[in-house]
Amino acid sequence: MKKYLLLFITALLSADGSLAELRLQDYRSFIQETLPFSKGMQLERVNLYFNHIVNNYDIHTWGVEDYWATPKEFIVHGSGDCEDFVIAKYFTLKELGVSPADMKIFIVKVKDSQNYHAVLGVKNDHNETLILDNISWKILPLQKRTDLKALYDIKDPALNHSTDPLIQHVLKNFKILQSKINAGK
């Protein structure tokens, strides 16, 4: 894992196009190295791998208030905010063979905060939903994350009928993201 940390620290020092390619090569190597591991170990490795990336607001990273980066954009750029971490972890675990049916993209409220946050929930072999979070290096079951209040899973089809402006905004961004991923971005 030290080599991954070094790669992302180096990324902060340069915006060279070759660095972007190095990051993508590193990611592809990481996927190959992680494939043979158990699901539990894959969760640990993926959470650690991405949590080394710089957490930054979209306005600083992308120049806009709210931008949902594809995993490729996130890796190449080397920084992002909570939904970028969740999206990268979700699609990486999917590539590693974790069923999308076992994963939830939660919008949550963090205790003592007015801000919304995104985390990834993944069912383990004991049917517990484990939380992968860019503000916590430790993976814990949702019920032990007393600092979080899960509001909804953005993959829940019932949300399509919601008139809540926040939900509609999140769903719109998720659809745009899926279009970008399908286009290879």
Rank of each mutant, 00 (worst) to 15 (best):
D58C: 04
P157K: 00
I131R: 11
L142E: 11
K94H: 04
K185M: 07
T70F: 06
S113F: 05
G97E: 00
I53W: 07
I53C: 11
D125G: 01
K123Y: 15
S79N: 08
R28N: 09
Q168A: 03
I75Y: 08
D125C: 01
F91I: 02
Y27N: 13
Y90N: 05
L24G: 07
N160V: 08
A20I: 11
L12S: 11
V54M: 04
L35E: 12
D156E: 09
P100I: 02
S179T: 06
L24C: 07
F37H: 14
H161I: 04
A88F: 00
K138E: 14
V122N: 10
P165E: 00
E44R: 01
T146N: 14
K3W: 14
M1Q: 14
P36V: 03
Q178N: 07
F37K: 06
L96G: 13
N115W: 04
I181A: 11
L151H: 07
T146M: 15
H117M: 12
T70L: 04
Q25W: 00
V119W: 05
K72N: 10
I181N: 10
N182R: 14
F30Y: 02
L96N: 06
E83F: 14
K149N: 12
L13E: 12
F85I: 05
I139E: 14
I9M: 11
K72A: 12
I9R: 13
F50Y: 12
L140H: 12
V110N: 06
D102V: 09
I105R: 09
N127Y: 13
Y27R: 01
A158P: 11
S113Y: 05
S14V: 08
S162P: 10
L93Q: 01
A150C: 08
L96W: 06
D153F: 11
E65V: 08
E65A: 02
L5T: 05
G17T: 10
L130V: 13
I139H: 14
S29H: 03
V108Q: 07
D147S: 02
P100F: 12
N51Y: 05
G184N: 09
R145D: 03
P36H: 01
Y27D: 02
R28F: 10
L132E: 05
N124A: 13
E128H: 12
D58E: 06
P165C: 00
G184K: 03
F106S: 05
R45W: 04
K94Y: 11
I181F: 13
Q32R: 11
Y67I: 01
I167K: 12
W68R: 12
P157Q: 05
D58M: 07
I167M: 01
I31Y: 07
V64I: 15
S79Y: 03
G17M: 02
M1S: 12
T61K: 06
W62E: 09
N55V: 08
Y90Q: 11
L13I: 14
S14C: 14
H161E: 00
S29D: 13
